[in-house]
Computed example of a mutant assay.
Amino acid sequence: MIPEELLRNFNAHYKDYKKGEVIFTENNTAFNYYQISSGIVKMNNYNDAGKEFIQGIFYKGQSFGEPPLFIDVKYPASAEAISESIILIISKEQLFKLLQENPLIHLKITQSLAKRLYYKAIIASEISSQEPAHRVLRFIDYLKNDVYKTTGDFTFKVDYTRQQIADILGLRVETVIRVIKSLEKDKQLKIVKRKVYR
């Protein structure tokens, strides 16, 4: 998202996180901007029954948890490394200085936040009104077309586990497994060595 060299020029620093290590927790105040240099991070909540709901999964080059920085609210979810990760961290004050001095970067941040809002609206609509197969396919197509901009049949590998897809879409993992097999049978997806391709 923001070039790493530019972040370092504004006093950003790298921090290593082990798999399963929490980066920040729900209801904490936001003081920093986080961008992934390597690894994978998820943002999640748990309901009263202990069921996890994944708000999003983020990869190299992506930032996460920045909306509270701009509106002075607490984090709505926790962030956790789901693989060994190196995160570039910059303070809120330094981030705002960087954005003021680099309006094109500011525009990119705004576009990224707008895409996430669009995605959240789509997922909310899917969860409330659509059949599981439609939800799963719509989610995968969003990743393929809008996030990774991949073209061609069965060229996009879904890096989410069945459990993660279930947690994002509000489904049971058994339902997601059944739906993916059904979509493969209908030639909508391809499964190669347990990996799903669209």
Rank of each mutant, 00 (worst) to 15 (best):
20 G>W: 04
28 N>V: 07
12 A>F: 11
29 T>V: 14
25 T>I: 08
23 I>C: 07
13 H>R: 15
15 K>R: 12
61 G>I: 05
26 E>R: 14
35 Q>W: 02
66 E>P: 01
29 T>A: 12
24 F>T: 05
49 A>G: 11
56 G>C: 07
10 F>E: 10
62 Q>D: 08
14 Y>Q: 13
57 I>H: 07
41 V>P: 01
56 G>E: 06
42 K>V: 01
47 N>R: 06
57 I>W: 08
41 V>G: 02
12 A>Q: 12
58 F>V: 03
34 Y>K: 05
32 N>R: 11
25 T>P: 00
61 G>A: 04
4 E>Q: 14
41 V>K: 00
4 E>A: 12
25 T>K: 15
66 E>W: 03
39 G>K: 02
67 P>V: 03
13 H>C: 10
19 K>I: 08
37 S>Q: 15
66 E>A: 00
34 Y>L: 00
58 F>Q: 00
53 F>K: 14
20 G>R: 02
43 M>Y: 00
13 H>P: 00
18 K>N: 07
33 Y>G: 09
6 L>V: 13
59 Y>I: 01
8 R>E: 14
40 I>Y: 10
29 T>I: 14
12 A>I: 10
30 A>K: 04
10 F>T: 11
60 K>D: 05
6 L>H: 09
51 K>C: 08
14 Y>S: 14
29 T>F: 13
25 T>R: 15
23 I>A: 03
39 G>H: 06
12 A>R: 10
60 K>P: 04
59 Y>W: 07
58 F>R: 05
49 A>F: 15
31 F>I: 09
48 D>G: 12
19 K>A: 08
37 S>A: 15
32 N>W: 09
36 I>F: 06
38 S>K: 15
62 Q>T: 01
43 M>I: 09
44 N>I: 08
25 T>Y: 10
47 N>F: 07
54 I>W: 03
47 N>M: 06
7 L>P: 12
25 T>A: 12
67 P>E: 02
51 K>F: 12
21 E>D: 06
35 Q>N: 07
64 F>S: 02
61 G>K: 05
4 E>L: 15
